[in-house]
């Protein structure tokens, strides 16, 4: 069910070339960051709300119903909802493949870095033209 949840949060967007969240290795992420219990608690609560609301498991719901359940979850337990959502974002937006598609610039370990073009300091002419603005006083 975890993949269904992740893809509800972050579905794929084929127009922008972005994969759904289930394509990143969330299992490896949860092991590395030791959040297995958070995931268990989240899925358990989600199942409960889903059944209470629609008498169905979350994965059996349509998209609109899933969003409704997530909205209800947020109201019932904002802390757990936010924690899990943060981990979902973290897993997704630290994935090398995702970062590459986003064109975030150089990816770690940053062999090349990012090139920013040289500046034309004529842009400072208005500041120069105003003259000195620092506070002067007689006795230093």
């Amino acid at each position: 069910m975890i993949n269904t949840v992740l893809d509800t949060f972050i579905p794929g967007d084929y127009k922008l070339g972005m994969p759904p969240a289930s394509k990143v290795d969330f299992n490896a992420y949860q092991l590395e960051y030791g959040i297995q219990q958070i995931v268990i608690d989240f899925l358990s609560e989600l199942t409960k709300i889903s059944i209470d609301t629609f008498a169905k498991e979350f994965k059996e719901l349509d998209e609109e119903q899933r969003m409704h359940v997530l909205g209800a979850f947020k109201l019932i337990n904002i802390r757990l909802f936010s924690t899990f959502l943060k981990h979902s974002f973290q897993a997704y937006y630290s994935d090398k493949g995702v970062l590459s598609i986003l064109q975030v610039g150089a990816s770690p370990p940053f062999p090349e870095g990012n090139v920013l073009e040289e500046d034309d300091w004529n842009i400072l002419i208005p500041v120069y033209e105003r003259g000195s603005i620092y506070r002067k006083f007689d006795k230093d």
Binding site: L85, Y93, V98
Partner: peptide
């Protein structure tokens, strides 16, 4: 902000949602 911070702060500042519009909104923020 870098990507993760963009997503998290964007969500909690109500600039970015989960679901279908997520990527489009992220694209407009990042």
């Amino acid at each position: 902000a870098p990507p993760i911070e963009t997503a998290i702060s964007g969500y909690f500042m109500r600039q970015l949602s989960i679901g279908k519009k997520h990527h489009e909104q992220f694209d407009n923020l990042f």
